[in-house]
Design a protein around this nucleic acid. Sequence first.
DNA 1: TAGACGTGGAC
DNA 2: TGTCCAAGTCT
Length: 348
Amino acid sequence: MNNRANLRETSAVGPDPVAVVPRLLGWYDRHARVLPWRAPPGTAPMDPYRVWLSEVMLQQTTVAAVRAYFERFTTLWPTVQALATAEETQVMGEWAGLGYYARARNLLACARQVAAMGGFPDTRQALAQLPGIGPYTSAAIAAIAFDRAETVVDGNVERVVARLFAVDTPMPAAKPQLVALAATLTPDRRPGDFAQAMMDLGATICTPRNPACALCPLNDLCRARTLGLAAELPRKSPKPPRPQRRGTAWLALDASHVLVERRPAKGLLGGTLAFPSTGWDGSEHPAPAAGPWQELGEVRHIFTHFELHLTVLAGPPQGVSRGLLLPRRDFDPATLPGLMRKVWALAP
DNA sequence: TAGACGTGGAC
DNA sequence: TGTCCAAGTCT
């Protein structure tokens, strides 16, 4: 990745960082959203554990969805040392419903490494070696928790920069160019606040649809706005259609027990608790119990890359050939991923 | 490297 | 209902 070359590629004339940085920080001082994992603007950073935990939870996930999970995790495990001692099944259960479950397994693996190291490393490069921490999260933790002048680029920053510099290249091809342009803005002072200000601006003002340019502190510096292109950028290539898949799930239960299983650690819903089912790609699995089975209905669930229709069958938990027969008082549907909660909702 | 990987809210 | 998309990472 040659930032200089990427800079040369853009024909856009960008705004002067000398103008952008104080304007954006001034706006952030007045309008920063209050969040449980955020230190107020201009104050000492939040502890690295909370910064890390929130950044992992926020990967491809909305602030609204994360709040309750963040409160629950920090109550159960106030420090990275405490989290490091947790059981994986408990962490998976507490993560249930948040999605992208590889994050939960990486979270625990990362906590254990960090605890063994005696604490979080304080550079982007060292942070990026840890499980579940990639280019975005390593830069975010380094900037926000350790006051390092790293360039933090998430989807918000990509959008803000694409508009500020009127980058016309479609995503995702424009990414290297946007990173290089973002780097021209990163300040040496208050880099953490600057990163959060860019993201807040993207989340609240410079939104994907109907950007509120009239309220934007950078509106007179924004090349896309000058060109009347703000809402058009960044350009995106069209997405392929979502295929349909189907399968069957079995709800084997009576008044006292329910049959569940732990899904394989890797792959879709990896490591989560589930009801036994067929594969969802056409592969057949035998019923997990003797039956007889009665059809309860169908569950429809949209994943990122396919749409699933699951036929749900109910029957007695007798002649069980696979899974784990759980006493109903030990079964908490809140520890199920979203799809399986829908299946459970059909239970008699 | 492009595809796999969840979920729920907004429009 | 359909489509987009939200503080990405891993392989």
